[in-house]
């Protein structure tokens, strides 16, 4: 796919089981390029942390290879992998000062004393904690501890930095090549070059944040990233990349973009982002137009979050931008709701 020298980590068909009965990671393939910031996103228990631990060397893949700079690292012990790692709870050593914590990776590498103190100070300055070298980790706030942990992972200039759910936002200037495990979506969307959405031990989709949000490949990604309205139905007819879907209970026919259905008669989940549904659109502009009853209007400041009953679903959400054009909606009011066929994606059932 790309020049081999560009690839820093390559997961090849990784499988992992702890008990010999269930696979925690089923078939994990991911290539991370130099300079990339990749986030593994997924519900808890989906195998994200296990993948990180396999890169760091604390878990062994049951099957498959991990290549670091094109070298298989399955049998390289953790301390020789040269990977910076930020753990979930930061793991700053409580019996050492901040400076001693930062000096630790340098000392075990037998680096010259004067060089150590220089590098430590530079790393501390980088995370804007230059004055805090003599403090103990317990005397720092959570955010400061996180920055120290990051500085410690960077101070020995590793090729790759792994972070397991760091909770605060990171300074964009600090980032190198990073794989980043998180359950915080906005964190992932704003920071990453690419996001790998994890579920059930498999990468469901790995793409840039915008395409992940705009063009989810399957129902899980659509459901997991951001908010979306889901309508279930059966494909009736397919033509030119679009398809006609008969909603369940004869609730209507929707024209949608064909994404993850192959034939007529397939079951499908239609996914529509709440901000793409338009209330009372001009006549004839959208192929999909349905009657809806307003159930609830929540004032959110920049937009009105409106829940309506539509085609038998009473959890259909519409985000109406708070501008001068919007109609004031009342509970129980009947409106028409329309959307474009391209905004409505026909995904797997």
């Amino acid at each position: 796919m790309t020049d081999q020298n560009d690839t820093i980590v390559d997961f090849k068909n990784i499988q992992k089981t702890y008990d010999g009965e269930t696979l925690v990671v089923k078939d994990f393939n991911l290539e991370v390029k130099r300079g990339e910031f990749v986030t593994l996103l997924g519900p808890s228990g989906s195998g994200k942390t296990t993948c990180l631990m396999m890169v760091a060397g604390f878990e062994t893949p049951t099957h498959g290879d991990i290549l670091l700079n094109d070298v298989p690292i399955t049998h390289v012990p953790p301390h020789k992998r040269g990977i910076g790692m930020v753990f979930q709870n930061y793991t700053l050593f409580p019996h050492m000062t901040v400076a001693e914590n930062l000096a630790f990776p340098l000392e075990v590498r037998k680096i010259d004393r004067s060089a150590i103190s220089e590098k430590v100070q530079r790393a501390l300055d980088m995370v804007r904690l230059g004055e805090f070298g003599t403090r103990r980790p317990a005397q720092l706030s959570g955010g400061q501890q996180q920055r120290v942990a990051l500085a410690r992972a960077l101070v020995f200039e590793p090729d790759l930095v792994l972070m397991d759910e760091p909770l605060g936002a990171l300074d964009k200037n600090l980032r190198e090549e990073m794989i980043f495990v998180t359950h915080d979506q906005s964190e992932a969307l704003t920071m990453s070059n690419r996001i790998a959405v994890f579920n059930d031990g498999v990468v469901q989709q790995c793409a840039a944040p915008d395409s992940l949000y705009e063009e989810p490949n399957n129902a899980f990604v659509a459901y997991f990233i951001g908010e979306n309205n889901r309508l279930n139905g059966t494909v009736k007819e397919m033509k030119d990349g679009h398809c006609m879907v008969q909603l369940d209970d004869d609730a209507g026919i929707v024209e949608a973009l064909t994404v993850n259905v192959s034939d007529t008669g397939d079951r499908t989940t239609l996914s529509l982002r709440p901000e793409r549904a338009i209330v009372n659109p001009p006549e004839g502009e959208y192929p999909n137009l349905f009657e809806a009853t307003v159930q609830e209007v929540i004032y959110m400041g920049d937009h009105l979050r409106t829940r309506v009953e539509l085609c038998g679903h009473d959890d259909f959400v519409i985000k109406i931008p708070n501008n001068q054009d919007h109609d004031s909606l009342k509970r129980g009011q009947t409106v028409r709701v329309g959307w474009r066929a391209d905004d409505c994606r026909a995904l797997d059932a």
């Binding site: 604390f58 992998r81 990977i83 790692m85 793991t91 630790f104 075990v108």
Partner: peptide, 13 residues
Amino acid sequence: SFMRAARSLGATG
């Protein structure tokens, strides 16, 4: 995780 952190930072067991 403390031991793991130390190992990932380059210390032998």
